[in-house]
Each structure stands twice: as structure tokens, then as C-alpha cells.
């Protein structure tokens, strides 16, 4: 198999994930887009592991680690989103602007 096939797949998937991260409003959808980007990386890792015949199998091991970390990240991210939703009754990222500079006159 040509190495280019998985690599191009990974690049396109990464681009789609990037688009989703920026364009999506809902925080959970943003988390999904992040998953897409992480998976793109995983494809790269596996493909290069196979291509290089790595005796340590670093690619596969790192893929497993990434999957694990992604799971942890999703768990924490969802917890944060839930808390935000409880406090603000929204998960719309553009509406969460508390850290912006206050307009003149407001506190």
C-alpha cells in the first residue's frame, strides 16, 4: 500500500476537524471535532509505525496513549461543559464572553 493514502486521509480528516473546531457553536460538537483531529493523528502514527517497522512499536503504543488521553479529555471536557451549562444555561461558545473586556461604564 502506498504510504500516501493513509497520510492524505489523515490530512483531510485533520482539516475537517479543524473546520469543525472553529465553525461549530455548540461546545459538545467542538469536542467531537477535536476527536476527529486526534484520530487523524492516530492514523499517521499507525501508518508510520508500519512503514518504519519500528521494533519498539512506538506508533502503536502512542496511538493507544492518545486514545486513552482522548477518553480522559472527553470526560473532563464534558464535565466542564456540564458545569458551564448549569451556571449559564447555554453551551454556545460565542456567548461565553465573560473574559472579554467590559464595555465602558459597566462593571
Amino acid at each position: 500500500m502506498h504510504l500516501v493514502y493513509p497520510l492524505v486521509l489523515a490530512v483531510l480528516l485533520f482539516g475537517i476537524g479543524l473546520y469543525g473546531v472553529i465553525a461549530r457553536r455548540n461546545a459538545i460538537l467542538v469536542l467531537m471535532s477535536i476527536e476527529l483531529m486526534l484520530n487523524a493523528v492516530n492514523i499517521n502514527l499507525v501508518a508510520f509505525d508500519m512503514y518504519l517497522r519500528d521494533t519498539l512499536h512506538a506508533g502503536q503504543a502512542l496511538t493507544l496513549f492518545v486514545i486513552t488521553i482522548a477518553a480522559a479529555e472527553i470526560g473532563l471536557g464534558l464535565a466542564i461543559v456540564l458545569m458551564v451549562f448549569r451556571n449559564r444555561a447555554t453551551t454556545d461558545i460565542p456567548e461565553l464572553r465573560e473574559l472579554a473586556e467590559h464595555k465602558e461604564g459597566s462593571v
Binding site: I22, L96, A100
Partner: peptide
């Protein structure tokens, strides 16, 4: 200051 409007997406767009 215009850029610092709290919109995370704007920050991300600029970052990427």
C-alpha cells in the same frame, strides 16, 4: 482591543 472580545472562535481562528 477590538480583537479581545471574548469570542473563543476568533482566538482560535487567529491561532490556526
Amino acid at each position: 482591543r477590538r480583537g479581545q472580545n471574548g469570542n473563543t472562535r476568533l482566538y482560535l481562528t487567529g491561532l490556526f
